[in-house]
Write a protein that binds this DNA or RNA. Sequence first.
DNA 1: ACTTTTACAGAAATATTTTCTGTTTGAAAG
DNA 2: CTTTCAAACAGAAAATATTTCTGTAAAAGT
Lengths: 152, 152
Amino acid sequence: MVLDDIDKKILRLLQENAHYTLKDIANKINLSLTPVHDRVKRLEKEGVIEKYVSILNKKKLGNNLTVYCQVTLTKQTYDTSEGFNQAILEMPEVVECNYVSGNFDYMLKIIIPDMESYHHFHQKKLSVLPEVSLINTVFVISEVKSTTVLPI
Amino acid sequence: MVLDDIDKKILRLLQENAHYTLKDIANKINLSLTPVHDRVKRLEKEGVIEKYVSILNKKKLGNNLTVYCQVTLTKQTYDTSEGFNQAILEMPEVVECNYVSGNFDYMLKIIIPDMESYHHFHQKKLSVLPEVSLINTVFVISEVKSTTVLPI
DNA sequence: ACTTTTACAGAAATATTTTCTGTTTGAAAG
DNA sequence: CTTTCAAACAGAAAATATTTCTGTAAAAGT
């Protein structure tokens, strides 16, 4: 799918604020409602726009600790990976999980209330997985930037 | 601010899909429009709901490479940190940046078209910052999980 | 040269959000 | 003990937004 300049403008706006109305967008890019509507629907259908979500404030929900876990598996086989992946998908405190290159196998991002909850998560949920051999924890001291906006 | 069970149900729904209508939500939690409307407005006003955004598909935008950069600064002073932070905020390919504990100072997440773009970013944008002393790159081979949904 | 497609505009129909009015309930004040 | 007040909710009306329909003009394909 080819994205022209108008598509890109629409995407930039919608990335910022999913509650912009078609009229808002139409005004900002000097078009009528129809093409804006058609383009947004097309972008949704093609999967360029994956979904619309609400971003909540972690701290106001009581999640005051963010950590990265660098995980090494016991074996680098497909079955071991798949088992680990499935387990991770079930854990709501794991908000990111990527299989990576380097000295460890997975990089995880965990959002959790406090150190005590992390201790529990580490000891009772993560390290007990049969696929997990080693966990190295990197604590976030201060968040500088966190955005869902992709460069277009 | 105290969140009761109804607030939490609303937040869980809106985290999933910011385009649920008040009616959708009202139906799902067996309430009329009024309390749903009032609660959503209150949650927005209190900052529990920070914003509504559209999630775009990275690959469909041509961003096929994700990497973590582990950055060590030249000095651990406030001014050095602040200088680095400001520079990072200006870089659209950096979607996450956290000051962390451990063997390095910052953990960055970079979303970028390909290895060539990363090479350019690394050499011409990141390593040239006067605050940066060392960069260790961890390449994402495969994305297992990536969510904006926080545990409630 | 003709047909088809694409991109757009305007307006009508439908749906949603917002505002208004009012009821019930439970807690605080007299 | 009863009166007052505020919070939580329901229903309906008003204001907005989205969706659908009709139509035009320009570009692309036959």
